[in-house]
Structure formats: C-alpha cells, structure tokens
Design a binder for these strands. Sequence first.
DNA 1: GAGCACTGC
Length: 715
Amino acid sequence: RAARPSVLSAVRERPFLIVTGETGSGKSTQLPKYLFEAGLAKHGAIGVTQPRRVATISVAQRVAEEMGCLLGSVVGYQVRFDDCTTEDTAIKYMTDGCLLRQILADPLLSKYSIIILDEAHERSLSTDILFGLLKKLFLQKKPPNRKTAMKVVVMSATLEVDKLSEFFGHCSVLHIPGRSYPVKEIYCNLLSPRDIGSSAYAVKVTLDIHLNEPEGDILVFLTGQIEIERACDLLFKKAESIDYRYEVHDQSVEGLLILPLYGSMSTDQQKRIFLPAPTGIRKCVVSTNIAATSLTIDGVRYVVDSGFVKQLNHNPRVGLDILEVVPISKSEARQRAGRAGRTSSGKSYRLYSREFWEQCMPDHTVPEIRRTSLTSVILTLKCLSVHDVIRFPYLDCPEERHILEALKELYQCNAIDRRGHVTRLGEFLVQFPLPPNLTCAVIKAASLDCEDLLLPIAAMLSVENVFIRPGDPQKQKEAELQHQELSSQVGGCNDFATLLNIFEQCKSPSAWCQKYWIHWRALKSAFSVEKQLREIISKLKQLPDFPKEAFEGSRTEILRRCLCAGYFINVARRSAARTFCTMDGHGSIVYIHPSSTLYNQETRLEWIIFHDVTVTSKIYVRTVCPVRYEWVKDLLPRLHQINAYELSSVAREEVTEEEITKWKHKEDLKRQYGEFHKKMERRNDDQSILDARARYLERKQQRAQGLSGPVKEIG
DNA sequence: GAGCACTGC
C-alpha cells in the first residue's frame, strides 16, 4: 500500500515499469486494483497474465472478493476452455498463452490499456515471446485506433532485474517489500558424492528433522515418481519403528504422516496434502517440482532439497527431446527454500555441499525458449509479420540452430515458402493449439471431409498418456492385456487407430475405463480438446479457399494417408531385424517402443511413421503406424529440398530471388568445406545421446540396487 | 521387453 503513489506515477510517466517483490507481497492482487482505482482502465482493460491456469483463476477470485464484485463482471479471467469475462471486464486475469492467442486475432491489443506480465522470473515460453512482442508494439508508432499508448508492467521476483530493465529501455524498477520469513540454509555433510540428492539420503535427513526439530511440516523435493515412492516406502518403514517415548525431543510431535505428491496423481489424491495433520502428527510431503510453484502447502517449516530436477531438453541437431536429471539453479534452490518461510521462519536442508552449490549449480535456470523445439513459436511470430525471426528482440536469444530447425520443419510441412513467408496453409495451422505437423494431418482429413478420424487422435495425442500402468506386476500384466485388446479391436497394427478406438468407445467414467485401465481424467481432457479443435476446423471449413479433395478408400486407409500428410517428417524405413532408420536427414537408428502394438512385429514392416521419440536405453519411437512407400514417396523429397541456411538468410532480411541464387552458390562452397565440420558436429551430438544413455543406465542400476546405499541408521 | 519433471494454447 505504501508503494501505491510511486507505482501510479511510474506507470503514468513511462511506457514500461518493472515491479519486483517476493511472493507474499501481494503485488499480483493489489497492483492491478490500484491502477484500476486510479482510472487507468478508462480507455481499455487491464490485462494481467499468469503462467498457470489455477493461479489465474484463484487470483481473479481473490481480487473480485476484495473489490466486492461478482467474478466475471469488473474482475474476470480467461483460460483455455473457460472464459469468465464480459464486455465490462476491466481487470482481466489470463494465462500468458491466452494473451498470445489474442495477439494473433488483434495484434495491437486494442482492447487493453495496460498489460501486466506477472511471474516474469519463471520465463515461460509464452511470457518470453510476449516480452518481445510488447517491446515491438511500443516501438511502432501509436496506431490511430488506440486512444492512449500501451503501458506494460512486468512483475517478477527479485531476479535478473538489470537485464530486464535494460531490455525495456532502462525502465524504472520498483521494489515492493514482501512479508516472507527468514529461512536458514543448511548444507549437508555428505558421506560420499553418490549421496548428493539421493532418495536414501533425503530419508535420513528427513528423519533427523523429525526427531530433532520442533513442530512444523516437512517438504521434500525429489525428481520423479519412482524416487518419491521409494523414499516414501523407506520413510514409512523407518518411521514406524521409532519409539517416540525415548526418541522425540519435542514432545508435541509423536508421529509422521507421509504423503507423496506428483503430477500424474489423481486430483483427489493430491488434495490430501492440503489437509492439516492431526494434532501431534507431523506432515511430510515428498514431492516433485510441482510443489515449487504450482501447489502451495501451508505450514511447511522444513524443506529438504535434493538439488536436482528432471528437465526436458531439445537437441536440434538430432531433432530429439531428452528428459534429463540435472542440478537445479541457485535461484531455483532459493525458490524451494522459500517454501519453508511462508508462515514462520524455517530451515532448508540442502542434500549437497557448499562446493557443489558453487561449482555445479548455475545461477539461473536456462529459460524454456533456449531448451525447447520452436516450431510453433516461429510460426506464430511469422503470422504476426515478424519476418526476421532471428533478430526478433528476444530477452534471451534461442540458439540459431534451434531457429533453423524450426524453419526447416515449417518449410517441410508447407507452412512457409522458400522465402520464409507464411503460406495460406501456415495461416490455417497457426489457429490450432497443436504442433504444426499434427495439424497438417488434421487439415488433410478435413479437406477429405473426414476430420472425425483425426480430431480425436490429435486430441488424444495432446493430453497426458491415457494408458494406466500400475506398479504391481500382476496388475501390470492385466492392464497390458486389456490395452492389447483395445488395439486388436481395430486390427492391431496401428497405435493411432487404437487411440481413436478408445476415444469413440468411452463416453463416461464408467466401469469401461476401469476394465480397460484407461485414465479417465486424461480422456476427459481429450474430449474438451477435441471439442475446441472441432470448433476451429468448422470455422476454417467455411472459408472459400479451404482445400477440398476427394479420395476413395477404406476408413483405415484414409486414416493412414491423412497421418502421412502430417507425419512424413517422422518416417522411418526398416534397416535391420528390429531397427528402423529415419529419413529426416539425421538418419537416426530407432527402435519401436515396447508399449506399441507393433512391438515384436518389426519384421513384418518396412515403412513406418511415428508420433514421437524417447531416448532411454535406446532411441524409441512411440505411437507408430505402418505406411506404404507410395504414400510417402512424393512427400519425401521435401525433406531434403532445402538447406536450412537458405531459409535463415531469408529470415534475416527480405531478399530477391537473385540473391537467393547467389547465396545458394556460396552455400554449395561452404558445404564442400563444411563437410568435415559437419561430421564432427554430428559426432558430438551422437556423443550427447550416448552420454544421456549412459546416465540413464547408471540411474537404472542405482535403482536396481535399491536402497542398499549408505543410509545412516537413526538412533 | 519399457519409464513419464512441469506448464500452456
């Protein structure tokens, strides 16, 4: 409240303002209110973005309550599938991805007078793109249909503020002091380097806290479901054997309530962590990173931080995503520690040494824009007339080869032309909340008037895995048999068709889902996605230039041919008994994943297309479908027709055909001399896959050894 | 004969 006058004058004077403050300073709820009360929303709404849906809705609810109005009137929110706003909404909370969609429809954001980007320090992909777009929007002359110039406020935890301020033309920075409590940081003395971040060591430290520290709940951060469940089992066994009459120093703590927490748990199971523990019982939540930002648990006084996280990294050279266990950054460690200081002072136990902190942990997490495939993002930018996608004002530039790869893929699916301009198909593709290649298949189907085949598949592929895999081996077998049954009902040789079959058969959370071991929550969201996709496609089909084709063939053949239209980039040919070689220029050797219905049928196949790749003990392709050579042969040349550098030269600036020819000649020369370098680069990337594989095998071995590692006995 | 951290449109 004290900051109110300075916030108002800063926003009035300059186009950009940065506001920093720890969580709990109330900036998300209070600041938009101040701006509204000061009359700054007269010529357009105040839009506030958040990276997550749940946070968006709950902040909007709180502000509506505080202002004594109905949610959806003056204060409203918009997230995917849920628009709770009216014409009169003056303070509109929304997810950052939602605002990005709105920019596509209205590039000047003429409905808004102020845009507030909240949680900017999280550096979500959408927020990063919005940074650049809003900066560009300001640099343009004030458009005639805007009454006042756009104002932009960026709200962030205290983090890389100088960089952010410089990015927005050295704008002013206001700090709002928070009300969080001090958290003492404790580095653990390790018995051996293998202990760093291990579940076994986390269990030991947790029990030490439980037996020696005054009341207050414990939050343990581990990397994944398996690690969490193993730690919970061991904690339970150890905690059970404690004789509290002799062991506990603080008499008020008599037992330990152990609760696992990770994203794939059902919502009901997740809710348990919010219930307060019975008197005298200490709650201990063992969680993935989900508890670092997405879920807040009150009453935590002790954090146990493994120092690691599972991170999805994209490798553009081989075109693969690899899920890796990596050390967290220092700022992420501070974020985790902060979870102990929300209601009183707390302690954070770090399962690593000071030395590890200083030498192995980076200052900041690499932002998503530098770690992810950029195909959709680049298409969005191109559709917003950002032709030069390399020199777009990024707060952090993506690696050039990530951009090149994205351009190449967009060219391959005919979303952009040889000169890097968006095609009509590209304009269709950008409308969909799906990866462009999958959308190609959907559009192909719609042009044949049989989108009913592809929409459910597209929806199923964009939600979490619908197949349940229970931990118990007996049940696992049972589940596998049922999944096989679902596949053989539609011929047993096409994983995409199996997804369609599931979507069509199940319409309610009946016994059906239980019988077939299908995840109802995932299926339900697939229904919502399908509905949304259907709405988009029916709008597009009304356009006069939407493609129309005719084709005679069986249902399964049409389905497979539509899939080819999108997935010809992911085509592979059998090269040895059980291996396939991709045709995308990387020529990777891949295996069919054992979860596929085509696993063990490799010798009967020659050409296949697949949805995605996972690198674990081998390079596996998942969700597979056999195709005929005739269906892809006309499409294959497109994979090699163009050199990505050619597209990039176009990306840098507008060039003439003549210049392209010149450039191509240079490119030929470069290619001759570059062969050696390319080979080396290739080898390095192969090495990175081998490294990932070695790390995976090592982890697996550690897992197999179970908890035989050095666990110091308690008492 | 297999592993899936977390978001978002």
